[in-house]
Amino acid sequence: MHIWPRKKWIVVSGVAVCALILSFAAGFASAYRMGFIYRNTIRAVRWVMPFRPDNDVVWRVQSQLFRQQPLEGDVTFLGDSLIAFGDWRILLPGYSIQKRGIAGETTAGVRERLERGEKILPVVAVMIGVNDPMQGIPLAQTKDNLKAIVHMLRGRRIILLSTLYTGFDYTNAAVTQMNRYEAELCKTGACIFVDLNKAMSSGGRIRPEMAIDGVHLGWRGYYTWAAQMGPVLAQ
Rank of each mutant, 00 (worst) to 15 (best):
A190G: 01
L161P: 10
M178T: 03
A174E: 04
Y170P: 07
L185Q: 08
G155L: 12
R180E: 04
F168N: 00
A174P: 00
L160R: 03
R180S: 04
R154Y: 02
E184Q: 14
I149R: 06
K147F: 13
Y165C: 06
M178F: 15
M152P: 07
A173P: 07
K187F: 01
N179W: 03
G189K: 02
C186K: 03
L164I: 00
C191R: 08
I149H: 01
C186M: 08
G155E: 13
Q177R: 15
L160W: 09
V150I: 15
E184S: 11
I159E: 13
G167C: 09
Y181C: 05
A148I: 11
Y181K: 05
N179Y: 06
R156C: 05
H151G: 14
L185G: 05
G155C: 09
S162P: 01
N179E: 04
V175M: 07
A190R: 07
L164R: 02
A148N: 13
T163S: 13
E182C: 08
S162Y: 02
K147M: 05
I158C: 11
K187H: 07
Y165V: 01
N172W: 14
K147R: 15
Y170G: 06
R157M: 11
K187W: 00
A173E: 15
R180I: 04
F168Y: 14
I158W: 12
C191Q: 10
E184Y: 06
H151Q: 15
K187M: 06
T163Y: 05
G155A: 06
M178I: 10
F168A: 03
T163R: 09
F168C: 00
R156Q: 08
E182R: 09
R180V: 00
A190S: 11
M178G: 02
I159H: 09
